[in-house]
Design a protein around this nucleic acid. Structure first.
Length: 556
RNA sequence: CGGGGCGUAGCGCAGCUUGGUAGCGCGCACGGUUCGGGACCGUGAAGUCGGAGGUUCAAAUCCUCUCGCCCCGACCA
């Protein structure tokens, strides 16, 4: 491609609305433009990147025997009603009616529709296994679109679905997907982890997420460098480092107006880990007092596994149930159910004294009756629950997930088959997603410098950019055109900046766009028969004879 | 949904406190000079001041409502 024929609207200034590095660079380098909150237009360069990522995904999916198909984006409500998700999912689903008043929705994902198809077409174990995938637009009315292309309301997703006759067969497809995902992310040049993820309320199901480390991410994972344990902090198990034992005599202390752990900790000059945090939540079965250590966060989902769904109590409810205002609650002397975190087993601690403006020192687990569970969020420095090694917590972008669904969709949608003995059984399913745009964003987040993007070779919009510095110089253009022709013949994606621009402008734009290799053709070097080959990542430049440019590039 | 911030030319911003009819930089067009890291000089085009209503002789500026975009939060007592 010739630059003069391409629409690459680069920006000198940083757009005011962008915060994440990937977002800023995608706007500045002319890869995307925003239409509305969470809706993005992909310009030629951005679209080329997505297509390259999609091509890699297709190759790897095809390689594990998955078959590409395409499903509608507009769905009839009935199918979603049959699995219960029409009601289970709230405002996140775009809903509409067609002209005859029939309820419809826009697809957030395609489990229902894929399963519907399987239910009509698959009869026998001989039809199994099947793995179907598509790269299709999904629509979700996100509560809060953010970080540019990372969380949008309309996005492309590669979603595949496996249909098997047995758990063992599902396991095989699951593993095939996990392996394929590893290859895909490697080819895309990403640093990533595969971590255990929250299987959700379904229980028994297994799922993993693929996570690319980046400050722009929305999730956190806990990683043990010792044994390799890695999990989303949403479910990561960990053993907190125990407090150094201290002498603490049992006594009430006056703590006027000191309600939060931070306030009391400062007031008593004692680290937060020596405090007991008492949090009242309301469940369907009544109030529950949750206790975690002062330096820990209560893990809502871990607690939910113990007490079921719950919500935080209102201030008035706290007063009503415990007879004390929030901020001075302690675990002693209450009749409510108490769930305490394991980290509180060995005291002593400081807790609220159940008396306004007083806390009490020297509290231990002997002072109250509780059920003991891990209900805290794993944090940096905690010890691995498996091997005791130190856990490292990292912020990440979720770039894919794989999920053992079992019969969650096949049963309600009657997707069944006859096994060898003629018995009717529900198909056992898995679903597997990848967000191509998130791969692109993560690649930028992980590979950039002050001058712009630094694309990994596998997914760059072009392989090489030729920079003829003076397009009005006949010799320069002769060499540039010759190079261009040769590279195109060799099926190398090449962009030639044939614009009548000053050298500085071309350099700046080339660095911003981040194509891995730049071939610079300047008049001075040309007089000696030389041109420059520059690596974007390292900024290293080598001068080579122009007859040797191609072979040098190919052999780099 | 709760909290905060911001909407003025394509982009980045000033002007608003103290009302008097809009300006700067970049970009864009044209001419000239330049020509290896976002050139310089000159000329020029381009804005319903997010929208509606109100106050006023007069509103970008004050008041009310509304729409949009961004950020934080949506368990931590």
């Amino acid at each position: 491609m010739r630059y003069s024929n391409m629409f690459i609207p680069t920006l000198r200034d940083v757009p005011a609305d962008a915060e994440a590095i990937s977002h800023i660079l995608m706007l500045r380098a002319g890869f995307v433009r925003q239409l509305a909150a969470g809706l993005y237009i992909y310009l030629p360069l951005g679209w080329r990147v997505l297509n390259r990522i999609n091509a890699i995904i297709r190759e790897e999916m095809d390689a594990i025997g998955a078959q590409e198909i395409s499903m509608p984006v507009l769905h009839p409500a009935e199918i979603w009603q049959q699995t219960g998700r029409w009601d289970a999912i709230g405002d996140e689903m775009f809903r509409l009616k067609d002209r005859s008043g029939r309820d419809m929705c826009l697809g957030m994902t395609h489990e229902e529709i894929m399963t519907w198809l399987a239910s009509r077409e698959i009869r026998s174990y001989r039809d199994l296994p099947q793995v179907w995938y598509q790269i299709q637009t999904k629509l979700r009315d996100e509560a809060r679109p953010k970080s540019g292309i990372l969380r949008t309301r309309e996005f492309l997703m590669k979603d595949s679905y496996s249909f098997d006759a047995s758990e063992e067969a599902l396991e095989k497809n699951y593993t095939l997907h996990a392996d394929a995902y590893h290859r895909i992310y490697e080819r895309c040049g990403l640093r990533f982890f595969m971590v255990e993820s929250d299987p959700g309320m379904m229980g028994g199901a297994v799922s993993h997420e693929f996570m690319a480390p980046s400050a722009a991410g929305e999730d956190e994972v806990a990683i043990c460098s010792n044994c390799g344990y890695s999990a989303n902090v949403e479910l990561a198990l960990s053993n907190p480092i125990r407090n150094e034992p201290v002498e603490m005599t049992r006594e009430e202390v006056h703590t006027p107006e000191k309600r939060t752990i931070l306030e009391v900790s400062r007031f008593l000059k004692l680290p937060a880990s020596y405090f007991m945090k008492s949090i009242l939540v309301m469940t369907d079965a009544g109030p529950v007092l949750a206790l975690v250590r002062g330096d820990h966060d209560l893990h809502e989902k871990k607690l939910a596994n113990v007490v079921g769904s719950h919500r935080p109590a209102q201030k008035t409810e706290v007063k009503e149930m415990l007879g004390i205002e929030a901020g001075f609650i302690g675990p002693m002397g209450h009749k409510v159910r108490i769930v305490a975190d394991e980290a509180l087993r060995e005291g002593p601690f400081v807790s609220g004294a159940n008396r306004p403006h007083y806390h009490i020192k020297g509290v231990s687990s002997a002072d109250f009756e509780a059920e003991w569970h891990d209900i805290h969020v794993a944090k940096e420095g905690d010890l691995c629950a498996k091997c005791g090694g130190p856990l490292h917590v990292e912020r990440v972008i979720e770039i894919g997930n794989i999920f053992k669904l079992g019969t969650k969709y096949s049963v309600p949608l009657k997707a069944v088959f006859l096994d060898e003995s003629g018995q009717e059984k529900p198909i056992i399913m898995g679903s597997y997603g990848i967000g191509p745009a998130r791969i692109a964003a993560a690649a930028i987040e992980q590979n950039n410098d002050k001058d712009g993007m630094v694309w990994p070779e596998g997914i760059a919009p072009f392989d090489v950019e030729i920079l003829p510095l003076n397009v009005n110089d006949a010799k320069t253009m002769e060499v540039a055109e010759d190079l261009y022709r040769q590279l195109v013949e060799k099926k190398i994606d090449v962009l030639m900046d044939d614009r009548e621009e000053r050298a500085g402008v071309k350099f700046k734009d080339a660095d911003l766009i981040g194509i891995p290799t730049q071939i610079v053709i300047g008049e001075k070097n040309l007089k000696e028969g030389l041109l420059e080959i520059k690596t974007r990542k390292t900024k290293e430049t080598v001068k080579v004879k122009f007859e040797e440019a191609i072979s040098h590039y190919l052999g780099r």
